[in-house]
Amino acid sequence: MATETEHAAGEAAAAAEVALGTPPEAAGPGMPQLAFETFSNQIFWLVVALVIIYFVMSRIALPRIAGVLAERQGTITNDLAAAEELKQKAVDAEEAYKKALADARTEAQKIAAETKAEIQADLDAAKAKADAEISAKTAESEKAISEIRAGAVDSASAVAKDTVEAILAAMGFSADKAAVDAAVADRMKG
């Protein structure tokens, strides 16, 4: 029975309206998917829905989303570029700082070296002066000593001559002055 209904519906849905008369429920549990008299209705509304969705999508929704995505991509790219720039600046600043530090260090080293050289020079001069003074004093002292020594030898020979003459006079001899001097001088050498 259901078979007959379906066939009739399939063959001439519009013409058999009278024969169909009864709705699908009343016709029994045929498959609603095979109720051909409803196909035109479904297809019509499906096409309407698809056309509406297509126009909404292609005219409004998709360009808008594409625009938003492109804009976001652009913003991200710009932000990244700005961040890169800032990073470069930070690197430059660090370089400058390092350079300044190195300059200061060399300057300090130079000053230290100069100071050291000056001090060395002063020191050398003072040392030379002191050396000269010391050597002068030494020479003076040596001269004095030699004078004193010479004086002492003279005194000793005079004393020796006098002593020899006195001894000889006491012993009753007349002293030959020249012989005494020669003998004393001879002894004093030894």
Partner: peptide, 8 residues
């Protein structure tokens, strides 16, 4: 089970 698919 198929009544839910009826077009009305």
């Amino acid at each position: 089970p198929l009544d839910q698919f009826i077009v009305k």
